[in-house]
Structures are given as C-alpha cells and as structure tokens.
Design a protein around this nucleic acid. Structure first.
Lengths: 213, 213
DNA sequence: ATGCTCGTTGACTGACGAGTCAATCTGGCT
DNA sequence: AGCCAGATTGACTCGTCAGTCAACGAGCAT
C-alpha cells in the first residue's frame, strides 16, 4: 500500500505496527481501541486506516510476519542432518524461547490473541498454526524411523505434547507465574527437552547417580 | 439470588447457564450477544439479568464451578498413597480428558475463554488456575522426593510441561486437529503420561522389544 | 377477590468504538 | 509561483450491544 519511505523519513507503517504490539500486549486486542494504537504511535487516528484496512489487519500482519520466520527456522533446523533428534528439538525450543526473550510483547500477542484464540484469529490462521505442528512432527517422525524415539507414540501426538509444553512455559512467563531471568530461559530450553525426550522418571540405567541427603 | 425452584418447575437459572455454555462454545464469549444466550435458552432477554449481574458473571460462574471440581479431583488423586506417581498423573490426565469427553463445550469455554485468555478472564482467575498447577506440582514433588522422578527438573516446571501437553491435546480436539473417538481419548490418557514420564526416547533397557518391519 | 411477591417480558437507552471523509499539509516537480 | 500526489489530520457517522426498567403474569396467602 505504501512504498518504502525516503531514507531519513520515519516509516509510519512500521511505527504503527510496533505501537500495535505494545498496545495489544498491554491491553489485549479486544480491550484496546484503535485510538490507543494511534496515540501510542504518536499519530493521528485516521493514519492507521491509511496504512491498514482494519484493526484486525494489523494483528494478522504481526502474526503472519513472525510465524513465517518461525516456520522457516524450524524447517532449517530439521534440515541439519548432523543434529540428533533431541538436539533438533532443543534448537526448536531454543528458537521459540529466544523469540519470547527478545520480543516478549510480540510473542505474547501472537500466543494470546492468535495461537490460543480458538474463537477468532486462531481459526483464521489454523492452517499456518498446523504447519508448525507438522514441521515438529516431521522431526519426531524421522527420529521414530531411525529408532531413536519410541514407536508407540505417534509423531503428531508427540509434537502436540512438545509444542504444548513450550507454549505453557511462555504462558507461565506471560502470566508472571515463572521467573524470567536469562538463566531461567536457558535452563528452560534444556529442561523442556529433557522432560519430553528423556521423561520425568529416573531412567533404569542412571546417567545421574542417585542423590544423597 | 434465586432459591431452588419448586419440584416440577424448570430451573431457569440453570437453563440459562447451559445455554451460555452452548453459545459461548459456538461463537465465543466476545462474539456472541446476551440475546443469543437468551434465545438459546428460550427465555426473554431481561431474564438473563434477573439471574446474573452481567454477561461476564455467567462465564465466571461456569468456570469457577467446573474448576473447583477439577481441583478437588486432583487433590483426591494425590491423596491416594497406594498409587505410583505415574499412575497419579495418569488419573489426572484421565480426569481432564474425560471432562472434555463428557462436556466438550464447557471445557472449550473454560480453556479458550479463561485458561488461555491472558488478557481478560485468565488474569481474573489467575489464582485458581495457579492452584491447579500447584496441585500437579505437588504430585511431582513427592515423586522427586521418593526418587521416582528426576531431581534436576523442578516440580513446578514439570507440572507446567505436563499440564501444557494435556491442554494442547484438548486444544487439538477443539480445533479439530486431532481425531475425537473414544479410543483416541483413551489412548491419549496413556500416551501423554508415557510421553512426559517415560519420555519420547527409547529407553536404554527396553521394556518394549525392538520393532520389526 | 384482593393484594403481595417474585418471575418474566422486550422495547428502550446510552455508551462506546470501528471505520469514513473532507480538509489540510508537505515536498517534489515544472 | 503554481500544481500535483500522497501523507496526515481529527471530527463525525453509524451500527452494535450491554444493561435498564416499567409493565405484565402467575401463584399464593388471607
């Protein structure tokens, strides 16, 4: 709709989109007004409608833009054949967790307003969301076929559990139920993979020796 | 507000609440009108406000009623000392999955509109939601202390992964991404516990022999 | 039969907020 | 200077609902 602005000029479209991230994250998509976004961007109300057809279009754009990056990242990780299955999943978890770490507001908006919004944008973007599950499932499926992962848990099922666990962690951070320090983010990457791949139960042949006291 | 109705008379309050479940599940809380609920219940618009102060109050009531049942159930399961940790988690998963199986609309409403709605009712009921995580964490914590579960994964973290995996499965059913047959529900109970407790990876000492063909 | 209470009705109000649009501004070009 | 295209402004429109309320009805007690 609008061409790239002259160098030196501010990209108002981007400005509005960034303001939308802040406002949607703070107040929620349904509980904010378009004027809130305009105010946050320091821009007149009408300008929002110069760049976007509707309030929804802003959210769609934010989601699609970011989700595609994630899909590409997962695809790339899956393609690195030198990585063991657990390592691939670790990379995936790492990517998602880092996304939250670097852009918590954007990830909050995507998860709360799209991914988990089964009655509105979730339905609209179902295909894109499903694509992510499928890509994760593909990683699991390879691991099943080379005998690393169990046969009796289907790849699709495993992918849902894995993704669900990660999203629940993000949710915990969003809700402020879990501590959000750099160390916690790093620990989470390893632990979520350990929990899902290795399981919560102590293995029959202990890698870690039994604890005393 | 209203006492129990005479025997033989219809409990309009319950009627409205049940209609709300149907309508909220079908259209979503934000995308339905109070008149939709009244119509679904076959009742005049104003009567809804005779029994409830607001649209939100209906949702709150639905959530609190059902969530408390779940909290009680988890507490009860945790108290049964004869059960192994994995068996306790199996019971918890079973309870939640059966809740969905028997009342899919109600569970959909609770998950979509409350549990996963970080910007509206999720925040309002955060304490109650957190209570569920804490109860699950307690089961895990006992298992860690008796050496069944790994030390290096904190109980709170494990509980989030476990609950997240289950909720993602319900989400998959709600979104129609996963098949919803009786067998699938039963399989899911076992598999989600197997995935989280046993892990996706093949154990060093195989309980299940290697698969051929 | 009269009056009381509580259940029930649905037309109405009032606020709110998404989206419109005519006017104004800006900067480049001739 | 005069013109044009696109950017920018914000007051206004217009539909939508949540919530109100005055009236009506049904059962019950005296």
């Amino acid at each position: 709709m609008a061409a790239a602005p002259r160098p030196g000029a501010v990209d108002k479209r981007r400005l509005i989109l960034d303001a939308a991230i802040t406002v949607f994250a703070r107040q929620g998509f349904h509980h904010c007004r378009v004027s809130d976004v305009a105010d946050e961007a320091g821009v007149a109300y009408g300008l929002v409608y110069h760049y976007f057809d509707s309030k929804e279009e802003m959210l769609n754009e934010l989601f699609l833009e970011r989700w595609q990056i994630m899909l590409d990242a997962i695809g790339e990780i899956d393609g690195r054949d030198e990585l063991a299955p657990r390592e691939k999943l670790h990379q995936v978890a790492g990517f998602i967790i880092d996304s939250y770490r670097h852009e918590p507001d954007l990830m909050k908006v995507i998860i709360v307003e799209v991914t988990r919004a089964a009655n509105s944008f979730g339905r609209l973007h179902l295909e894109k969301i499903r694509e992510a599950y499928a890509k994760i499932a593909q990683i699991v499926e390879s691991a099943r076929q080379d005998g690393t992962f169990k046969q009796d848990i289907s790849a699709q099922f495993a992918a849902m559990c894995f993704y669900g666990a990660i999203e629940q962690l993000l949710s915990g951070w969003i809700f402020d139920l879990l501590p959000q320090t750099e160390e916690e983010f790093e620990r989470a990457k390893t632990l979520v993979v350990e929990a899902i791949c290795g399981g919560l139960e102590v293995s029959p042949s202990p890698t870690t020796p039994a604890v005393s006291g």
